[in-house]
Write a protein that binds this DNA or RNA. Structure first.
Length: 367
DNA sequence: AACGCGTGGGG
DNA sequence: TCCCCAAGCGT
């Protein structure tokens, strides 16, 4: 099928089937989407599904309604609003981008892809998406969905992360936006098609506007295109974590240092190695620690086991240290804490309904 | 260029 | 339970 035919049928399909997502709302005063809302949504959507972002987007915007409010915010508060969404570097990069936008562009979000690309956390995809979807620029926006959809419709074999596949897809996407009436609609339509119809497994070809001309479907190769990527190896990681409370029921947390997992978020005092005397190694001299179960977290590249050690601090000030703080339960709920640590703390937070109150029995092995 | 970085839903 | 993976980016 020619680019013209593809662009036209995709546009028609998208205008009929597009989901009503909050970041797609048009600002009546400008007739376009709010650039700041689009920016926040694009950062959240990096490697993250729509359903997940829907939970966080409105809350984040309520907390930081404008790019100025985000730029002025403290890093810790931005991280707290991101807690649970994952890939926390995005929160720092979005924060930095907001500061650049306010500091260098008077709070106006750039509208051309080259300038957008200079912002922290904005790569080729996000720059293309912002420029085309918000500002109408005639540039492609190639994400994982677009790669899959275009490889399939053209019947092009290859892995999704193969540079040759990506060059091919970029060329096809460029043809589409070149002939499109609304480049942003074509780009967003491609992603929508990949997310809702041309899915990795069990594509719903019956609902696809391109089904009649799809080469992969004709050749019954949708299952083989794209070839699966080489999966990164997942390594195990064991962390010893102290769950220490004081007489008022407050729990002691520390900020995960740069370079650590969940960098910048609050975590339980943690040791990676097995120290002879855990409490002393954690700077908790005088606290008697007892084994208290474990929590597991599966990350993209890491299988983490948190071995929990419970203790009480008779003298809270003795446990103070740089980047450590006592949290009461209310503060704990508001704090920037990863889902893994939130799960580990679930026992303390039982006022809060947890989806998975997994509580493994204590292992016999020494921790 | 390959790797590090979270999370929860679905098959 | 296990495996796949989703609107990527920085280094």
């Amino acid at each position: 099928m020619t680019p013209e035919v593809l662009a036209r049928s995709l546009t028609r399909w998208f205008q009929k089937s597009r989901r009503d997502l909050p970041w797609r709302a048009v600002d009546p005063s400008t007739g376009q989407r709010k650039p700041y809302h689009a920016l926040v949504s694009e950062f959240m959507l990096q490697q993250t599904q729509v359903a997940r972002v829907l939970e966080f987007f409105p809350v984040f915007l309520q907390r930081f309604p404008t790019v100025e409010s985000l730029a002025q915010a403290r890093d810790e508060h931005v991280l707290a609003a991101w807690a649970g969404l994952g890939y926390y570097r995005r929160a720092r990069l979005l924060h930095a981008a907001a500061r650049t936008i306010v500091g260098e562009f008077s709070g106006r979000i750039p509208d051309d892809p080259e300038t957008l690309r200079q912002l922290p956390g904005v790569g080729a995809y996000t720059a293309g998406a912002m420029a085309s979807i918000v500002f109408g620029a005639r540039v492609p926006a190639v994400d994982g969905n677009v790669v899959r959809v275009l490889l399939r419709v053209h019947g092009r074999a290859g892995a999704a992360d193969d540079p040759r596949s990506l060059r091919f897809v970029h060329a096809r996407a460029s043809e589409l936006v070149a002939v499109a009436r609304h480049p942003g609609v074509v780009n967003e339509g491609l992603m929508e098609l990949g997310a809702t119809v041309c899915t990795p497994a069990n594509p719903r070809c019956g609902a696809c506007p391109w089904a009649a001309g799809c080469i992969a479907r004709r050749d019954e190769r949708t299952r083989d295109i794209p070839r699966p990527k080489r999966s990164p190896r997942v390594t195990g990681l064991v962390l010893r974590c102290a769950v220490v409370t004081d007489a008022r029921g407050r729990v002691l947390l520390e900020r995960a240092p740069a370079g650590a997992l969940w960098a910048g978020l609050w975590r339980l005092p943690t040791a990676e190695m097995t120290p002879r005397r855990l409490a002393a190694a954690l700077g908790l001299a005088g606290v008697s620690l007892r084994r208290a179960g474990r929590a597991r977290a599966t990350l993209s590249h890491r299988q983490v086991e948190l071995r929990l050690w419970r203790g009480h601090a008779a003298n809270p000030t003795a446990c103070r240290a740089e980047d450590r703080r006592w949290f009461d339960l209310a503060a704990l709920r508001r704090a920037g804490v990863s889902s893994a640590h939130r799960q580990a703390l679930a026992g303390l937070l039982d006022a809060e309904p947890k989806k998975r109150p997994r509580r493994a029995p204590g292992p016999r092995s020494r921790q």
